[in-house]
Every structure is written in structure tokens, then in C-alpha cells.
């Protein structure tokens, strides 16, 4: 990046000097604007936070009840020392946002994590025209092309029925914030019994319901009696539960994982999942290219995941000014 850039990379993360604000900072700062509530983007310790209001309950749960968070509506403009700052839907999870900063006629957009696919649990991605786009690149390789999400939910349902017919339980691993609720929304009206939830899922599912998102009926696993023989259930659990002793209570079961990484057979097989469901909350390759084109950005800065290929493709095939944020800035995105 260049010394006069409106958004710069500092040790604590992305920083906008004229407004003295950070976006998703890694360390404690005075003013932190958050794109969404995932742990690698929203970290505790900052003096004041700004976030989209649908994310408020979840952020308060994660950052602590005493964290000072200013809730904002999508599109609501905050003026800070001549910089106009606003949040716009990113379609990633509930309350996820892109951060738009405008200063002296120049517009920068930091997408945070985003996707272009349908998701009934959050507001759809909004194209925000800009001069410079700082985009995520988690799945920026042409092998990552998503199928319509409803087809994937159909696959999950078919798998559940297949397991039930064999008298087995189906344990679906997925991230507790976002992916789990998306699966539950897809199953709404299609399940003949409640979906069972791992304890880590419960408060987040409750937060989505409180925000008015309609989800399939659920029940906590822990309410089922110890020693009760479970069969034919669908259980949602965080990936960390796979292979743990917690899984033993389900006896004969198959284990699946819902994630964009499941697109690649080797990733599924080395993690020893029986089934992989390709369901991602990130943009696929066509979604990333479409976004670059639709924003009209003349300069593209790629971060997270396969940022090198995206930047090179934007330069060589699309003729844009493009670079990678910084090799050491972000690790591999969990999904």
C-alpha cells in the first residue's frame, strides 16, 4: 500500500488515518469498526465499537456485556472529521457489513467476508460502487464454484433420511455462527422432528430467532436423557466436536461437514468426514470476479486465503491495478 492511501495497514490492522478508526483490528484500539461477529474479525479490548445493529446481541455475547458498541443501520452515514463512514450488507452472516469510507471525493470499500448466494438468514450483499476495493479472497481459485445453496440443503436432508433409514444419527459439523443457522433456515418446514443442537450452538440460534430469522425447530442435545438411545436424529455441532468424546453418545452415526472447503475431495478425506456438503458463507470465484466488476473499482486489494491468484488475475486478465494486502496479515480463513 502507499503512504497517502485512505486505508492503510498498521500492526493492529486496517486503519483510516483521517478518521482515526480501525476496521476489524487485531489489537485493542480507540475506535473499532467491525464487519461481523466472527472471532477472527471481532476481538475484545477496544474502547469503542461500531457495528451493524443486527449483530449487536451476538457481539455483546462475544465481546462481553460491558463492551461499548454503537449499533448502526445499513446505509447510515457517520461523519468523522470529514470522512463519511457507512455500513452496507455483505451477505456473510446476520449483521455482517462492508465498510465504506469516503474522503475528499474518493471512496474505499472494505468488504470483510461476503457472499453473493441467497441466504435467508441475513440481508443480501449490496454492490457498493467504489474507487478502491479491499476484498476477501478466501476461495479465490476457479475450482471453487458453488452450486445453488438449496440443492446443498436438499443433499443434507437426503443424507439425514439415508442415515435415519439405517437407524443411524447424522452429525453435521458446521460453524456455530452463520452456517448452522443457514442450514436450519433451509430445513424450515422440511424436517419431521427437531434438529438437535450442541451446547455451543444454542445462544447463537436463539440470537437469530430474536432477530426475527425463521429457523427449523431445534432442541438442545443436553435435554435428551443420559443413556437414551438416539437414532435417526440430525445433530448440528461445531467442527471441534468431531472425534471428541462428546460424539460417543450418538453411537452409530455418520459425520458430515458443511463448508466451502468440502469442494475438494482431499480436504474431506484427510479430515475423515464421511460426507462433505459444499456450503459456504464466502464468495466463490465467479462471485469474487462479479463483485470486482460490479463495484467498478479501478484498484483491487486482495486479503485472506488465495489473495495472490485473485490479485494477479485482476492485474493480468482484467487489467486493473491490483495487489495483495500483505502476506503476513491474515491466516487461512476458518469456515
Amino acid at each position: 500500500m502507499r503512504p497517502d492511501d485512505l486505508v492503510q495497514l498498521r500492526p493492529d490492522g486496517l486503519y483510516c488515518p483521517p478518521a482515526d478508526l480501525y476496521i476489524d483490528p487485531s489489537g485493542p484500539v480507540a475506535r473499532a469498526w467491525l464487519t461481523h461477529a466472527h472471532a477472527d474479525h471481532a476481538r475484545a479490548g477496544s474502547t469503542r465499537y461500531f457495528a451493524q445493529r443486527d449483530a449487536l446481541a451476538i457481539l455483546q455475547h462475544r465481546l462481553g456485556a460491558d463492551a461499548a458498541i454503537t449499533p448502526l443501520a445499513y446505509g447510515e452515514v457517520t461523519e468523522v472529521d470529514g470522512v463519511r463512514v457507512s455500513l452496507h450488507p455483505a451477505g456473510h452472516i446476520l449483521g455482517s457489513a462492508q465498510v465504506r469510507v469516503e474522503y475528499r471525493g474518493e471512496v474505499w470499500v472494505v468488504t470483510g467476508d461476503y457472499k453473493r448466494d441467497d441466504d435467508p438468514t441475513c440481508a443480501a450483499f449490496e454492490v457498493v460502487p467504489c474507487d478502491v476495493l479491499i476484498t476477501e479472497a478466501t476461495f479465490a481459485l476457479p475450482v471453487y464454484r458453488w452450486r445453488p445453496p438449496q440443492e446443498v440443503v436438499d443433499e443434507v436432508l437426503a443424507w439425514w433420511q439415508h442415515c435415519a433409514a439405517l437407524g443411524r444419527n447424522a452429525v453435521l459439523c458446521c460453524y456455530a455462527l452463520g452456517k448452522a443457522q443457514r442450514v436450519l433456515a433451509g430445513l424450515l418446514g422440511r424436517a419431521d422432528r427437531p434438529v438437535l443442537l450442541h451446547g455451543a450452538m444454542e445462544p447463537l440460534v436463539a440470537a437469530y430467532r430474536a432477530a426475527g430469522v425463521a429457523l427449523a425447530e431445534t432442541a438442545p442435545v443436553k435435554e435428551r436423557a443420559r443413556g437414551e438411545k438416539l437414532a435417526g436424529e440430525l445433530i448440528l455441532a461445531p467442527p471441534s466436536a468431531a472425534g471428541s468424546t462428546w460424539m460417543r453418545r450418538f453411537g452409530d452415526c455418520e459425520v458430515g461437514f458443511a463448508s466451502g472447503w468440502m469442494q475438494v475431495r482431499g480436504d474431506r478425506r484427510r479430515k475423515a468426514y464421511d460426507r462433505g456438503f459444499v456450503l459456504s458463507d464466502h464468495a466463490d470465484w465467479p462471485g469474487l470476479l462479479r463483485t470486482v466488476a460490479e463495484t467498478g473499482a479501478r484498484r483491487v486489494i486482495a486479503t485472506h486465503g488465495f489473495s495472490d491468484p485473485l490479485a494477479r488475475y485482476a492485474r493480468e486478465a482484467l487489467g486493473l491495478d491490483a495487489e495483495v494486502l500483505s502476506a503476513g496479515y491474515a491466516g487461512e480463513e476458518a469456515e
Binding site: 476457479p142 475450482v143 475438494v264 482431499g266
Partner: peptide, 19 residues
């Protein structure tokens, strides 16, 4: 970009299938 994809997927037959 084909080579980047191949390096990431690991298997040529699968890389081509996905592309």
C-alpha cells in the same frame, strides 16, 4: 491459474473436473 489450482487441489483429475 491452472497450476495454482492444481497445487491447491493436489490431484490433476480432480482439478480438471472442478474446472
Amino acid at each position: 491459474l491452472f497450476e495454482e489450482s492444481h497445487a491447491s487441489v493436489g490431484d490433476l483429475a480432480e482439478t480438471i473436473a472442478l474446472l
